[in-house]
Design a protein around this nucleic acid. Sequence first.
RNA 1: CGGGGAGUAGCUCAGCCCGGUAGAGCACUACGUUCGGGACGUAGGGGUCGCAGGUUCAAAUCCUGUCUCCCCGACCA
Length: 581
Amino acid sequence: MRWTRAFIPTLKEDPADAEVVSHRLMVRAGMLRQVARGIYSYLPLCQRVILKIDAIVREELDRIGAIELMLPILHPAELWQETGRWDLYGPLMMRLADRHDRRYALGPTHEEVVTDLVRHEVRSYRQLPLSLYQIQTKFRDEIRPRFGVMRGREFTMKDAYSFHADEGSLDATYGDFREAYSRIFTRCGLAFRDVEASAGEIGGDVNHEFMVLADTGESVVFSCPNCGYAASSGRAEAVRVAHQVPAGQAVLEEVATPGKTTVEEVSGLLGRDPSEFVKTLLFQMDGRTVAVLVRGDREIEEEKLGRALAVDRVEMAGPERVREVTGADVGFAGPHGLPKDVRVVADYSLAGRGNLVAGANRTGYHVTGLEIGRDVQPEAWIDAVRLVGGDPCPRCGTALDETRGIEVGHIFKLGTKYSEPMGARFLDEDGTQKPFLMGCYGLGITRVVAAAIEQNHDENGIVWPTAIAPYEVEVLPLNMDSARVVEAAERIYEECRAEGLETLLDDRADRAGSKFADADLVGIPWRIVVGDRGLESGMVEVARRSARKDMARFSPEEAVHHVRANVLRERGGGAKGPGGG
RNA sequence: CGGGGAGUAGCUCAGCCCGGUAGAGCACUACGUUCGGGACGUAGGGGUCGCAGGUUCAAAUCCUGUCUCCCCGACCA
């Protein structure tokens, strides 16, 4: 492609609305333009990257026997009502009505649609297992879109769904996907970790997230440098300690703490450390109020709480409900003397602690000398605390590292969560009807683009991994007024193309400096610089984008061969696996 | 949804407080000089100042409303 014929509107200055590097560089490199909040146009350069990632994904999924199809974007409400998610998904789902006022959603994910398809078409265990995937646009009306394409409201996702007759088959396919994902991200040049995760809205028990390590990531990952344990913040476990009521039991006393509603304030007033406090948080779940006790210096991770108590939805109680239950204003809730219909559970962070400070359930008062086991009997001890870096590993006790990550993939074992309510059954070998066991596997294509840039850039621009670079080679004639420079560059360009290299020729009449600057910005991995200075001795220069100073001189022919050999090596993958159909 | 900030040329911004014929740099067009890391000169093209009301002889500027975008937060008692 000739630059003068291409559409690569690079920007000299940083766009005012881009905060993170990947967003900034995508806009500056002429890859991306915003249309509305969280909605973007992908320009040609970006589209080429996306198509390359698509191709890698297709290759690796075909290899494990998954089959590509295309499901609709527009979903009828009825399908979502069958699983209850029409209501559960809430405002995250974009909804609309047709001319007859029938309700639809723009698909945020496709479990319902694919399960509907399979329940109509698959009858027998003989047709299983079946893995279907698509690469398609998804819509999610995010609370707060941000970081460019990292969290958009419209984005491209590869989603796959597998159907099985038994657990063994599901396990095997889940393992296949896990390996395929590792290969995909590796080929895309990403440093990633797969971690135990929490399932969120999708559901299911076992699931793993693929996290690209980056400071700008929105997710928090805890990993053990010793044993390799790794989990996302919604799943990472605390060490569980059994609670015993201390021998020297303290005396329960009420103290006045007027206007002091936070642990910090009361801590300051009483001169007691926050870790000696019981924080009593009231939640509403499944119509009941639950008091969750956690150590004063710790916070509750709602995803863990929901899982520990086996409820779908966890919501903090509003101020009205708090007053109703505790008889006091918000800020003075305590664990003892709560109404009998309130469940009380305690987090392990409180185990082994005595002589505690807590709210008195009376506005303006707290209590000291509280003993769990004497003054309050938790119905259960649970692990619902949000970990922090340095907490002990639940497997081996080593201090955990806390890092940030970008979630680029998430795979789930769903079991019968969707097949059961939707009546998706097959006839098994033993002659009985059974619901399909399912797995689902998501991979954020556009997010991979952003993640790749987050991990592969320098102060001048993007440094593409060759496997997903928009072009593999850029030919850079420095002076378009010099006939021999133009001639040599044209010849090299044609030779590169003849060798099957994806080549961009910067044939603009601009000065060398601005062409170099754009080349750095756009980040094509291999560069062949053609200038009068080198041609004096019949040489051109070859440089790798990631190591600009290590350029080498070659004759034009050698340059093409040198670049070709390197590109072929760096492209990677390309393995034609079995089962591709 | 709460708080903060911003909407003026394709981009980055000034002008607004103190009302009086709309600006700069970059980008774009033409010509000339330049030409190995974002050149320079000359001459140009390009803006209903987000939108709608209001005040005023007069509004980018003051007032009211509204829309959009960005950032932070979203109940940890």
